[in-house]
């Protein structure tokens, strides 16, 4: 039965960075901003985490660095799109390209060194419980953070006044502005939060998943996180399902291969995007679902009256 525990742990590891990055992007998109720079912020987080952990010897400093660098990098996006009212799609793409290049440059001297691993937290006794012990009480800190983060975001969005304000800004920034809600400020904060999450997700890659640094090691996971937000139709609960479903498919395909069920790897690579398209078609057919879940102002720039 240890095999199953081990498989589930693998799934958790594969899902955690997707979940964290997607949770951040969900908040950003709920505020009406589309930041396509997740991949770029993630890889900046990965290189920052690796370098910091390497220099200080402490993976937790690495995680903190990833959060700070991710947020700082997203600040660039926020400044361009909110203050200078640049096009969000173009700016997001630019952020991704910039992040991939810049991280390669920063990380050049760290290539080929084994990194500092963030070890699992093993709670004595509890983590020795068969099967579930390791899963519930014996994972790395970032895993617990990812779950707490998602729960916190769900609570924030739907149970707090600030969350209501954020959703209102995403629904109609003009109406929100007319009510005196500070649209730009809320969006700045949402983008910073999204950047911090993407950074941490990148940190998970280079601290937990594979403790090493190589150029381009996010390998498209930022894009999958973006697709997951749509797949989840902007609802946190469905995000959890989507991220873990994807993690399970990723791990499952290798197990399928190992036991002799051949599944083309290309099909699985495209699966999150296919699923996203299916979900988009499904929700587009239902007016109420579209209205309730899709941030109506998504991707549009806000210019207040003078």
């Amino acid at each position: 039965m240890d095999v199953w525990a081990s498989i589930i742990l693998s799934v958790c590891a594969a899902s955690t960075p997707l979940l964290i990055a997607a949770t951040g992007e969900l908040v950003v998109e709920r505020s009406g901003v589309l930041n396509l720079g997740v991949e770029g912020m993630m890889i900046m987080g990965a290189v920052a985490a690796f370098a910091t952990a390497q220099v200080t010897g402490n993976p937790y400093f690495g995680a903190v660095a990833a959060i700070i660098v991710g947020a700082a990098f997203s600040l660039l996006f926020a400044f361009l799109t909110l203050t200078l009212v640049a096009n969000q799609v173009a700016t997001g793409l630019a952020l991704t390209i910039l992040g991939l290049g810049l991280s390669g440059m920063i990380g050049e001297s760290f290539v080929g060194h084994p990194g500092v691993r963030m070890e699992a937290i093993n709670i004595p006794l509890l983590s020795d419980i068969p099967v579930i012990g390791k899963i519930i009480f014996g994972q790395d800190l970032i895993f617990y953070v990812s779950i707490a983060l998602l729960a916190g975001v769900a609570w924030f969005l739907f149970k707090t006044r600030a969350g209501l304000m954020l959703r209102s800004v995403g629904d109609s920034h003009n109406s929100a502005h007319a009510l005196g809600i500070q649209v730009i400020k809320i969006r700045y904060m949402a983008i910073l939060f999204g950047g911090a999450c993407a950074g941490l997700a990148g940190g998970h890659l280079s601290l937990v998943y594979v403790p090493q640094w190589v150029e381009g090691m996010t390998a498209g996971r930022g894009w999958i996180a973006l697709a997951l937000v749509v797949f989840a139709s902007w609802r946190p609960g469905r995000l959890l399902i989507g991220a873990y479903l994807f993690g399970a498919v990723t791990i499952g395909q290798f197990h399928a291969q190992a036991v002799g069920v051949p599944i083309p790897a290309q099909f699985l690579t495209s699966l999150p995007y296919l699923a996203t398209i299916v979900v988009l078609v499904l929700i587009a057919r239902n007016r109420r679902l579209t209205m309730i879940n899709t941030p109506a102002a998504l991707g549009t720039s806000f210019v207040p009256d003078r």
């Binding site: 594969a14 594979v210 090691m217 996971r221 290798f254």
Partner: peptide, 12 residues
């Protein structure tokens, strides 16, 4: 693709 290679190793 380091994460993918890691996943494959874990599965094996």
């Amino acid at each position: 693709d380091p994460p993918k290679e890691a996943d494959a190793a874990k599965a094996l």
